[in-house]
C-alpha cells in the first residue's frame, strides 16, 4: 500500500457510516493529502468509487487484503 497521511478504521461499520466518517476525516485534511480507510462492509467497495466520482476526491487505490477492504483517497485540492 502506498503512502498515506491519515488513517480511518471503519471496520465493523455498515452503510452509510464508512462514507460519512471518511467525509468527516477528509474535511479535517488539507488538499492533496491522502486518507487510508479500512472497512469490512462489502458495499463500501462500490460506494467509495461512487463517492470519489461525485466529490472529485481521487480514489488512488482500492483492494481487499486479509478479509478487509482498503482504500486510499486523495483529497481534492
Amino acid at each position: 500500500m502506498a503512502d498515506f497521511d491519515e488513517e480511518l478504521d471503519a471496520s465493523g461499520l455498515n452503510c452509510p457510516l464508512p462514507i460519512l466518517r471518511a467525509k468527516k476525516a477528509l474535511g479535517k485534511m488539507e488538499g492533496g493529502k491522502v486518507l487510508h480507510i479500512i472497512a469490512t462492509d462489502p458495499g463500501s467497495v462500490k460506494d467509495f468509487e461512487s463517492f470519489s466520482n461525485q466529490t472529485g476526491n481521487e480514489l488512488l487505490e482500492s483492494k481487499e487484503e486479509g478479509g478487509k477492504f482498503h482504500f486510499l483517497i486523495k483529497k481534492k485540492t
Binding site: 452503510c15 452509510p16 462514507i19 460519512l20 463517492f51 461525485q54 466529490t55
Partner: peptide, 11 residues
C-alpha cells in the same frame, strides 16, 4: 436519514 446524510456528504 441515511439518504439525507449520504447526499450531504456527497455535496
Amino acid at each position: 436519514f441515511i439518504l439525507a446524510s449520504t447526499a450531504a456528504a456527497l455535496g
